[in-house]
Simulated assay, not measured.
Amino acid sequence: MKQYTAKEVENFLIEEKALNIIDVREVDEVANGKIPGALHIPLVLLEFRMNVLDQSKEYIMVCRSGARSGRATQFLETYGYNVINMTGGMLAWEGKVE
């Protein structure tokens, strides 16, 4: 499984790289803030919403600590998606939130 640290993702955003970030946390968790521009798809709904994702794009998966996003990464990889887990999750995130 490919991985980025929270700091690497933050630096990509500072460099204004176009990123496709998916936040798989629950609704109440996201209400406390998410990475700007991240698409919110709770992990329990990912199987039903993966059809909105473009298999030609790269996605960075985010959760609270990195465990759920790791499961999401493995799940999507089995369907041929290009996904990367953000290790440490939002607990390690020091960048801006919306």
Rank of each mutant, 00 (worst) to 15 (best):
A18M: 11
A18G: 09
A18Y: 09
A18R: 12
A18Q: 15
L19K: 05
L19I: 15
L19P: 04
N20A: 08
N20Y: 11
I21R: 01
I21F: 02
I21N: 01
I21S: 02
I22F: 05
D23R: 04
D23M: 10
D23P: 09
D23Q: 06
V24W: 08
V24K: 08
V24M: 08
V24Y: 07
R25L: 08
E26S: 03
E26D: 13
E26Y: 00
E26W: 00
E26F: 00
V27T: 12
V27I: 12
V27S: 10
V27Y: 06
D28M: 07
D28N: 10
D28H: 07
D28P: 00
D28R: 01
D28Q: 09
E29C: 02
V30R: 03
V30D: 04
V30A: 08
V30N: 02
A31P: 00
N32P: 00
N32V: 04
N32T: 09
N32L: 13
N32C: 03
G33F: 10
G33T: 10
G33S: 11
G33C: 09
K34Q: 14
K34Y: 10
K34D: 11
K34H: 12
K34R: 13
K34S: 14
I35G: 05
I35D: 03
I35H: 02
I35L: 06
I35Q: 03
I35W: 04
P36C: 06
P36L: 04
G37E: 05
G37I: 05
A38Y: 01
A38I: 02
A38P: 02
A38E: 01
L39V: 12
L39E: 03
L39W: 03
H40E: 14
H40N: 15
H40W: 14
H40G: 06
H40Y: 05
H40R: 03
H40S: 15
I41K: 09
I41D: 07
I41H: 08
I41A: 04
P42L: 03
P42S: 06
P42T: 04
P42N: 07
L43F: 15
L43D: 06
L43V: 06
V44S: 14
V44H: 13
V44W: 10
V44Y: 12
V44N: 14
V44G: 13
L45Y: 15
L45F: 15
L45N: 15
L46N: 06
L46R: 09
L46E: 07
E47T: 03
E47K: 13
E47N: 12
E47S: 12
E47V: 05
F48S: 11
F48V: 10
F48M: 13
F48I: 06
F48L: 13
R49M: 11
R49G: 00
R49N: 12
R49W: 08
R49I: 00
R49K: 14
R49Y: 13
R49V: 02
R49S: 08
M50D: 01
M50Y: 04
M50N: 03
M50C: 07
N51T: 13
N51Y: 14
N51S: 15
N51Q: 13
N51F: 15
N51M: 12
N51G: 15
N51R: 14
N51E: 14
